[in-house]
């Protein structure tokens, strides 16, 4: 996975899946129909501000709440390249990997980063912000395989000989 740079949006602790995409929009037909409601209860302006490649930085327990897979899908559809948080809720974590959305655990960047600034990620190694490096870990092999396949659907297609 190659190095990338994006503009930062900063969110707090316990950003739950009802904030990421409220239940009332889950019956919309496609993720593209839902993306305009991303983060609606907390920051309804975000979908119009986020551009392709941007990065979300958040606190503890990002993605807590329901099992709705639309949460990582909406974040991905908004163009977000990765979410950096102090910690992630477990179902959201699995759903993100399965949809090819990169998640990075780091607890140091939150204290210094400002919304609108640029940040560079070298996956599996470090985050660079204003000339300072912040170490990050790498994923277990079985998860990296899914991420490298571009998500679980592609991993299963491969298993079934479709790609």
């Amino acid at each position: 996975m190659a190095t990338f740079t994006g503009k930062v949006f900063v969110l707090g602790d316990d950003i739950d899946t009802d904030i990421i995409i409220p239940t009332e929009y889950l019956a919309l037909k496609t993720i593209d129909d839902m993306r305009q409601y991303g983060f609606y209860p907390l920051r309804p302006e975000l979908p119009s501000l986020i551009s392709k490649g941007d990065i979300i930085v958040a606190g503890n327990n990002f993605g807590c709440g329901s099992s709705r897979e639309q949460a990582p899908e909406v974040i991905k559809a908004l163009g977000v390249s990765c979410v950096i948080a102090k910690s992630f809720a477990r179902i959201f974590y699995r759903n993100s990997i399965n949809n090819g959305l990169l998640l990075i655990e780091n607890s140091d960047i939150q204290d210094v980063v400002k919304e609108g600034d640029e940040l560079t990620v070298i996956p599996g190694q470090e985050i660079r912000y204003k000339g300072v490096s912040y170490k990050i870990g790498s994923l277990p092999d079985n998860l990296m395989d899914i991420l490298n396949d571009g998500g679980l659907v592609n991993a299963m297609k491969k298993r079934n000989g479709l790609i």
């Binding site: 099992s67 179902i91 759903n95 399965n98 949809n99 998500g151 679980l152 659907v153 299963m156």
Partner: peptide, 12 residues
């Protein structure tokens, strides 16, 4: 709980 993609994987 799991997401729908993982559920589809289990069903298969």
């Amino acid at each position: 709980g799991i997401g729908y993609t993982e559920m589809a994987g289990i069903l298969g």
